[in-house]
């Protein structure tokens, strides 16, 4: 009833208005229906846009499943269990790509996590506030650089450096280990691990920073008042309070690393092999899609790449949901603890 324009009633003398309202009920509803209609249309339009996101997501999953069906039918579980990827003979096994994705992401995360948490702790607990803010902004800049530029730097600057200095050093001193055997190619699993590490650090750092800022000051004071040093305060009060949030940040970083395409494609060497050596080239799931999808040789080839995409989608969905739940739990705890 608040929505009708009311021009009619206002322009009429008071007596008439009363008549309109009491005796001739129809006009008022018509006026308000008119306003309501426009509002209904507005609601409909915005709803259509809002719900289109659900449709897009559903369509995405549906298309991926539909297009993957040929290889799912042809190979079944063998698809993720076999290393034989031969588009010419139409046999497809995705194991080397899965291996490459898993190993590169996990190692990158193992390196990135301590560095990121350390940096976040430096920003929130150690540095003077202004300086911490500057470091945080710099780290956010790192997040804004596009993947292809990381790749450019990786392939033209980092890979040659690895090839000339780091890898020969590793071969000479640690060559007895299976992880550092073979020739120094530059482009390699090691290069992918490094570039992924650099790329996920800003994500983990900035989310961890937010998580740490959500730890109530009273927790820090409690530890300090017990005679804790700053590190003991962090270990006793800050990290336990933020642990689920930090875990969420790390998992979100994992999601980013697994789906990362361009930079990895440019530095990993794109060779489908399963090798323990970090010095040898490898391949990842997004990379094989990037390299082969535009030029598939057969229906089955396209389907195989689609199935890799489907696996990737499923994994990233699970990872993102997990991370959201953990971060959500953290914010709820912070809200509850403030009571």
């Amino acid at each position: 009833m608040s929505n009708h324009t009311g021009d009619l009633t206002i322009s009429q003398p008071p007596g008439c208005t009363e008549n309109t309202v009491t005796n001739e009920t129809p006009p008022a509803p018509i006026a308000s229906t008119k306003g309501l209609n426009a509002d209904l249309v507005f609601k409909g339009v915005t709803a259509a846009f809002a719900f289109s996101i659900l449709v897009i997501l559903a369509l995405m999953a549906l298309e991926m499943v539909k297009e993957s069906l040929p290889t799912i039918k042809a190979f079944g579980w063998e698809f993720i269990n076999s290393s034989d990827w031969n588009p010419v003979q139409d046999t497809f096994g995705a194991l080397p790509y899965i291996w490459g994705s898993v190993v590169s992401s996990i190692l990158a995360l193992a390196l990135a996590t301590p560095l990121s948490v350390g940096t976040a702790l430096f920003i929130t607990e150690i540095a003077p506030r202004k300086f911490g803010g500057v470091v945080a902004s710099l780290v956010e800049l790192l997040a804004a650089i596009p993947s292809v530029i990381y790749g450019l730097w990786g392939v033209l600057v980092m890979a040659p450096w690895l090839q000339q200095t780091v890898q020969p050093f590793l071969i000479e001193h640690f060559g007895f280990l299976p992880f550092f055997q073979g020739a120094p190619y530059g482009v390699s699993m090691l290069a992918a691990v490094f570039i992924l590490m650099i790329m996920v650090i800003p994500i983990i750092t900035s989310i961890t920073k937010e998580v740490l800022l959500a730890v109530p000051q009273s927790q820090r004071e409690a530890a300090i008042a017990l005679g804790a040093t700053r590190w003991e305060m962090i270990r006793m009060a800050v990290l336990p309070y933020g642990r689920s949030g930090i875990l969420g940040a790390v998992i979100l970083g994992l999601g980013r690393a697994i789906g990362e395409t361009m930079a990895v494609t440019m530095v990993i060497g794109n060779t489908p092999q399963i090798s323990l050596s970090l010095l040898s080239p490898a391949y990842t799931m997004p990379s094989v899609i990037a390299n082969e999808f535009a030029e598939t040789t057969s229906k089955l080839h396209a389907s195989a790449l689609m199935e890799i995409g489907l696996i990737l989608l499923a994994v990233t969905l699970v990872i993102n949901v997990m991370a959201r739940l953990l971060l959500w739990g953290m914010t709820r705890q912070a809200a509850g603890g403030a009571k």
Partner: peptide
Amino acid sequence: FQKPNPFPAM
């Protein structure tokens, strides 16, 4: 302190 602040994770 003013508000009880036990360590919630412990």
